[in-house]
Design a protein around this nucleic acid. Structure first.
Lengths: 360, 360
DNA sequence: GGCGATCACTGAAGCGCTTCAGTTACTCTC
DNA sequence: GAGAGTAACTGAAGCGCTTCAGTGATCGCC
């Protein structure tokens, strides 16, 4: 039951009490140079005494036409989001950047795999939206467009009128594949993310590849294939497992299946470090030596990659930079900047202990 | 440079176009039962055609006196926050609960170790605040009080008028300590979080314990001591290392120091799984067998605890429940509910592979 | 000592929406 | 066919703040 609240003091209350106009009180808070220090002092003191904590943020937003927050949309619930270290790092950098622009970060988690509900987006008090790896047909994306809010997309297909930050997924994946072929591997498997937002978990079919909705998965897959093709290894020979999330347990499951194939792959390309860590565990459980019998490559270079034993050969992407760029872009669009050309974050291969020459 | 925008359509635009009153258009969106379906249809169609995406969220908030979001304050930057799996799990559960109450989650990260800037709190468009493990003298907490916003605190000393969710830190720690004494350990060390928000890292002094600001650290420490004291082990004999964050690397560093003490502790009580994982690594590097030569106990029971080798004996707390309870409490306070008594989440000991009988 | 500049402050017009007390025109009901 | 009831819609009063064009008064300057 809503209790009977005492009416809160407003600007007007203070103005009347002090005997000045509302405008002056407003100025006391927002433009101290517009009034004498003494008067300002008096106003602040009165406000304090009356329990007035400053102009109401919502009313101020309405008047200034500035919501003061940056919305962040992601595909899954936060559960899966926060359990992905790569996303956490990015989000942190984003939040810090946004905060430095004096805005808060409004989180709009997805309720299902297609991103946030459109209704949440419609009601969100925000000036700009950052979308992270949504499928390109997400209703939330449409809602942003309808509201004509500036949009920054990360790891997603370009959206007309939106700024975009991406990683050279294709190039990074290709680098990883090349590394393996250089070590003499010929039977290589891919342990990847979902291609579409349907929760499928298992070996991918050609149709699934054709109808894929997630750009990152697709680009990395294409990069792997490209790198392998350069040594004459064709797509048909490259098994692909789809894991519906970047989580060790799912990586372990997929790797178990891949290691069960005959002939057994001598190397696995994983689309994230978490998946790779799961694969490492699977190899261990099956008694497969890494990198003696199988090599494993990750993607991201999260802290966990260099922590374990063996440490992970992986494709490093600068997640902090990614978040920072996205934040800066969002802030810039608020100032009316045009989207400009996509920002691409570079990648580089980190060779560590989990890869070695192909067994003969 | 801000571009010359075409004036956006408002309720009024639509109303005029359709030839009805503003109230009716508002009803079309908020109370469909207040007008005939045909008219509503016509209004929606016109809105669509005019590019009107629905009532402006900020204006609506002002009129309804409901900001529509729940603010979440934490101590550190999101960086450290998101790298802490325990917090991630909690945050996810919180977000889901909040979302089900049709509110978004507004993140107010701390810029330093004393929590968010008071200014951010003052300007936040929110109806209720959830604070997580802030030091009890955080200025942000004061700002919430000044604004008279309902407050829910998690893992923090009680604040007058605020609802509170806590874990039985004391009990859990005591359980862990008892487990060790039952295994015959007498030389036990503690690897803990910071006692105060000053970034100190190193062995704790009695003064630091006396002037501590973080309740969780203090309660767990007290619980450990209590459990040990029951077997006659006194505080002086229990070295304590303060790590300024729940991160493996810091755990490793602290554990190295603890393992360097003479006589060497035969067991380490860690205030989080991440710290324990770091200790595990340190033991490995120093050639100490776990649990043969040293036993290690964690706290939280995050997924990583059962993933590694050896798996971690740890104090399990239900992080999902904790987040859910906090969310529910926040929602309830919005309905004007009184804070009620603190909600305490139970704990239980999970015995796994990292603890064993004390070496003789 | 007169003129322009500066300082300190005010009035009023919004910002875009919700809501509530009506009003009007129908439809029942006996 | 009169009274009660209801469905469909409207007018106007807010919600609490910002901002901009003024208005006097005071100041500096030659």
């Amino acid at each position: 039951m809503s209790q009977e609240r005492v009416r809160r003091p407003t600007l007007d209350t203070i103005a009347r009490q002090v005997g000045v106009s509302r405008a002056t009180v407003s100025n006391a808070y927002n433009r101290p140079d517009q009034l004498s220090p003494q008067l300002r002092e008096r106003i602040i003191a009165t406000a304090k005494q009356l329990g007035y904590a400053g102009p109401d943020p919502v009313a101020r937003s309405l008047a200034t036409q500035r919501a003061g927050s940056v919305a962040f949309m992601l595909c899954e619930g936060l559960s899966s989001a926060f359990s992905d270290p790569a996303l956490c790092i990015l989000l942190d950098a984003l939040a810090a950047t946004v905060d430095s622009g004096d805005r808060a970060l409004l989180l709009l988690p997805g309720t299902n795999d297609a991103g946030p509900r459109a209704a949440s987006v419609i009601r969100a008090q925000t000036d700009v939206v950052v979308a992270y790896s949504l499928p390109d047909d997400a209703p939330a994306l449409q809602a942003v467009t309808d509201r004509k809010l500036p949009l920054v997309v990360i790891d997603q297909p370009a959206v007309p009128g939106a700024a975009s930050v991406r990683v050279d997924d294709f190039g990074g994946a290709r680098l990883a594949a090349r590394h393996l072929t250089e070590l003499g591997h010929r039977r290589v498997a891919v342990l990847g993310f979902s291609l579409s937002a349907d929760g499928w978990r298992g070996p991918a079919t050609p149709e699934r590849v054709r109808t894929a909705h997630f750009r990152v998965s697709l680009d990395r897959y294409a990069g792997y294939l490209k790198g392998l093709a350069e040594q004459g290894i064709v797509a048909d020979e490259v098994p692909l497992w789809e894991a519906p999330g970047s989580v060790r347990e799912l990586g372990r499951e997929g790797a178990r299946w891949l290691f069960g194939l005959r002939p057994r792959p001598t190397a696995v390309l994983c689309m994230s470090d978490e998946l790779a860590l799961g694969a490492l565990r699977a190899a261990d459980e099956l008694g497969l030596a890494v990198p003696g019998e199988v090599s494993i490559v990750g993607f991201d270079d999260t802290p966990a990659a260099s922590w374990g034993e063996p440490s992970l050969t992986t494709v490093r992407q600068d997640l902090v930079e990614k978040g920072r760029q996205a934040g800066a872009l969002a802030l810039r669009m608020l100032d009316g900047a045009r989207p400009g050309r996509p920002v691409t974050i570079g990648v580089e291969l980190q060779v560590r202990g989990s890869t070695g020459p192909a067994p003969r």
